[in-house]
Simulated scan of single mutants.
Amino acid sequence: MTRRPGANSAETKANLLASATEEFAANGYSKASLRRICEKAGVTTGALYFFFENKNDLFVKVIDPIVLSVIEAIEEDYNDRPENLTNVPIPEPGTETAISRKLFDICYDNRKVTDIILSNQDHPAVKALYDRISQIFSRRFEALSRALYTEIPAGSMLNANTFSWFTQTETFVGRYVLLLNLPKDEAIAQLDAIIRVLRAGIGTLIETDEKNGLLPSKKAECAYRALHYTKQFS
């Protein structure tokens, strides 16, 4: 028996979102059926359109909680990073991959919606999420670059291409680990290892600039702290 929105509108909307989550997870956005969503939720299509404009709006509402949580976590981490690296404290042991771990927890603990996002990467809302993440990471490394150099010197490996590739790689690492479908402990271990390798790569480039006289040691040391990087040679 189908129901119309009424006193239990909140419940009806929640049922539609739950039904849509199952449908998008099983069939993807393009093959998802609004009729099946309504049937499973026990409502009419009219009730669906009472709450959502169309299938696209419904899809966006399904993924929005995870999207907003991910963006909020990254923004908080970015805002906690002072652009003036002279005041960066020595990182606490075990915090090297804290933000990556937090993001992974959000996605892993909401796996069904995360799978919907990963399986519908051509959808404009998903593309917008990846673009937003890349923009935030780019701002982080642009801030690092400004703090290190007034102008990036000739011969430095820390140029726009370096930061662009690092940003894109860091953005896609979490997706790759999630797609492996590993148990959570093993997935976290994989994620930690990859993030440490990426940050060590940037740290090595900073170290090379320091060794070649392109970067003062004091600024380099602050950058190592910000990256949780252990210097390998003097």
Score class of each variant (00 low, 15 high):
residue 105 D to H: 12
residue 101 R to V: 04
residue 20 A to F: 12
residue 78 Y to W: 09
residue 185 D to R: 08
residue 176 Y to H: 14
residue 224 Y to N: 01
residue 170 E to M: 14
residue 2 T to E: 13
residue 129 L to T: 00
residue 1 M to A: 11
residue 62 V to T: 07
residue 67 V to T: 13
residue 77 D to C: 01
residue 33 S to K: 11
residue 189 A to S: 06
residue 174 G to Y: 02
residue 121 Q to E: 12
residue 34 L to W: 08
residue 113 V to E: 13
residue 103 L to R: 10
residue 51 F to D: 08
residue 104 F to S: 04
residue 232 Q to S: 14
residue 48 L to P: 00
residue 99 I to H: 15
residue 28 G to Y: 09
residue 221 E to N: 11
residue 159 N to A: 07
residue 56 N to L: 07
residue 125 A to T: 08
residue 1 M to I: 06
residue 105 D to G: 04
residue 103 L to A: 03
residue 62 V to Q: 01
residue 227 L to P: 09
residue 100 S to I: 01
residue 181 N to W: 03
residue 227 L to M: 09
residue 92 E to R: 15
residue 12 T to K: 10
residue 206 I to D: 00
residue 77 D to K: 01
residue 161 N to P: 02
residue 117 I to P: 01
residue 68 L to M: 11
residue 145 S to D: 14
residue 70 V to A: 05
residue 52 F to C: 03
residue 56 N to A: 12
residue 198 L to V: 01
residue 26 A to H: 05
residue 84 N to A: 15
residue 22 E to T: 11
residue 132 R to P: 03
residue 172 F to C: 05
residue 216 P to T: 05
residue 131 D to I: 09
residue 62 V to G: 01
residue 25 A to P: 07
residue 13 K to M: 15
residue 70 V to K: 04
residue 11 E to S: 14
residue 188 I to K: 02
residue 191 L to P: 01
residue 86 T to H: 04
residue 126 V to A: 01
residue 96 E to N: 10
residue 136 I to A: 00
residue 43 V to R: 02
residue 104 F to N: 00
residue 130 Y to A: 11
residue 150 T to S: 15
residue 127 K to I: 07
residue 11 E to N: 08
residue 114 T to D: 02
residue 67 V to L: 10
residue 59 F to P: 10
residue 12 T to R: 13
residue 41 A to H: 13
residue 208 T to I: 10
residue 73 A to Q: 09
residue 226 A to Q: 04
residue 61 K to L: 10
residue 44 T to K: 11
residue 146 R to W: 14
residue 149 Y to E: 03
residue 169 T to F: 15
residue 32 A to C: 11
residue 223 A to T: 01
residue 176 Y to K: 12
residue 89 P to R: 02
residue 167 T to Y: 01
residue 138 S to Y: 07
residue 156 S to I: 00
residue 181 N to A: 13
